[in-house]
């Protein structure tokens, strides 16, 4: 990734506190256009919270967040509206609207923000559903009729509805079988290439860290413990980082990756 690429998201000295509990204590990071940035860290280390701050659902206690060139910590809700249209968000557990079919769910952003005809919206929604690897007939189902993995895919399809410049994914591959998880990684890479997406994702999946992440940020102890490519981080000797990337699972994923690269 070019060092001088445009910066699309920037956090500066972000502090987050829930009542007494300090979650982030001075986090600064930058997301560059066209990259896949993965945020990793133990459970409860504040990854989802950081994502919520980037997508303007939560105000940090202190510090600033800049999205697509706008300081969103100072902006009002109305000023944020046009900005929000340019991002897609996929929540950790889907957050599909229960009162609408999967097809309708996927078409919601199109229906709200464009004047396209209903037929065309349904077709585009169907295209997005197929793109995420769902069967053609799934569109007619209701969210509570889906399996966990299907729900993830449908949520991703909805996040992609407007072809956003910036895509935020909270644990996209958790709850997927290994083959589907690989498929999702492929899809993310393909979307990045074709649609020029910038992707910020939270993940625990070592395989997808190796395969899709351009850069990885490791959260821990309320701060950023390390940032860099997977190769850099996995060679790091800093205790906190080494531990995270040298567990048995991490080693298997790393070995597979290196074998794949040498073949």
């Amino acid at each position: 990734m070019a060092e001088n690429a445009e910066i699309v998201v920037e956090l500066r000295d972000v502090v987050t506190r829930f009542d007494e509990k300090l979650v982030h204590d001075g986090i600064s990071l930058q997301v560059r256009r066209g990259e896949v940035l993965a945020v990793v860290g133990g459970s409860g280390s504040g990854k989802s919270t950081l994502l919520r701050e980037m997508v303007m659902l939560l105000q940090p206690t202190a510090g600033s967040v800049t999205v697509l060139g706008r300081d969103v910590t100072a902006a009002s809700e109305i000023e944020l509206l046009p900005l929000r249209r340019r991002l897609g968000v996929m929540f950790q557990d889907g957050a599909l609207f229960g009162g609408q079919t999967v097809l309708e769910n996927t078409g919601v952003p199109l229906r709200e923000h464009t004047e396209l005809s209903g037929d065309l919206i349904d077709e585009i929604a169907q295209l997005k559903l197929l793109l995420t690897g769902l069967e053609p007939s799934v569109g007619a189902l209701w969210p509570n009729q889906l399996s966990g993995g299907m729900r993830k895919r449908a949520a991703l399809a909805r996040a992609l509805a407007l072809d956003p410049e910036l895509l935020f994914l909270d644990e996209p591959s958790s709850g997927l079988d290994p083959i589907s998880a690989d498929g999702l990684d492929d899809l993310i890479l393909q979307l990045k290439e074709l649609l020029g997406l910038t992707i910020v994702m939270v993940t625990h999946d070592m395989d997808s860290l190796w395969r899709v992440a351009d850069r990885v940020v490791l959260l821990g102890d309320k701060r950023i413990l390390g940032a860099g490519t997977m190769t850099e981080l996995s060679r790091s000797v800093t205790p906190g980082i080494g531990k995270f990337f040298s567990g048995p699972r991490a080693r298997v994923a790393a070995r597979e990756h290196n074998q794949g690269a040498s073949l």
Binding site: T101, L103, D122, E123, A125, Q126, L127, L130, L131, P136, S137, V138, G139, A140, W142, Q190, L194
Partner: peptide, 17 residues
């Protein structure tokens, strides 16, 4: 983009309940 769309093999109407 056309190739991506063609790969999905969309046929007929989107499904409705």
């Amino acid at each position: 983009l056309f190739r991506l769309i063609a790969e999905q093999g969309i046929e007929g109407e989107p499904p409705r309940p």
